[in-house]
């Protein structure tokens, strides 16, 4: 960024489609730490997050032709790739094998509201520190662990409508609290 040219999203998409090293270098320098924050927020493991980050860049690189500016920002598109790739890793056999002690029930035991070491949260997960507990659980399960609203309703034994309402309320609160 220091003295280097800055591109608009539109210009960057054009550069990426040329697949030059310069385009990659710009993309990496400007987005890798932010994407890594998204990935680490979900994975909470630097080593695994490094593998996921590489996969995210591979997907961006190979699927840039499929990006449609009419459907949203390039950043939102890349953010979604980072989040879904991270969730996929959480669901993968490799991850489950290397984190066997984290069974479903133990995941509940590790929900942020019961953790004591909030200060050690990595990346985007720090965003939920300010939420109250019943909202925190819902954001944890839906956003950071990728469960559907139906699954969460079953896990917490509360009505689906309540899950939906609380998730939306929690996100609105997050957006209001986190302002630049």
């Amino acid at each position: 960024m220091k003295g280097a040219p800055t591109y608009t999203e539109q210009e960057l998409v054009g550069l990426l489609k040329q697949r030059t090293q310069k385009a990659f270098s710009y993309l990496y320098d400007h987005y890798a730490p932010t994407l890594n924050g998204i990935i680490l927020g979900i994975i909470q493991d630097h080593e695994v997050a490094g593998d996921v980050l590489q996969e995210v860049f591979v997907k961006i690189w190979r699927q840039i032709e499929q990006y449609d500016a009419a459907k949203g920002r390039l950043f939102t598109w890349m953010y979604n790739i980072a989040r879904t790739t991270s969730i996929d890793m959480l669901r993968s056999r490799d991850w489950k094998n290397s984190h066997r002690n984290h069974s479903l029930t133990e995941d509940h035991a590790e929900l942020p509201d019961r953790r004591t070491n909030y200060g050690e949260e990595l990346g985007l997960r720090r965003i939920i520190q300010t939420l109250k507990d019943d909202h925190k659980i819902l954001v944890e399960l839906s956003y950071f662990q990728g469960y559907t609203q139906e699954e969460i309703a079953g896990m917490l034994n509360i009505p689906l409508g309540t899950v939906k309402t609380r998730i939306r309320a929690a996100i609105v609160l997050l957006r209001q609290q986190v302002k630049l």
Binding site: Y28, N36, G41, Q54, G123, R126, V178
Partner: peptide
Amino acid sequence: LSQTLPSFAEPVAPPDKEKIW
């Protein structure tokens, strides 16, 4: 989202750039 998420960025180890390229 695009303005907020950089606040939660995490640094990436330098060799990763070459590895990914």
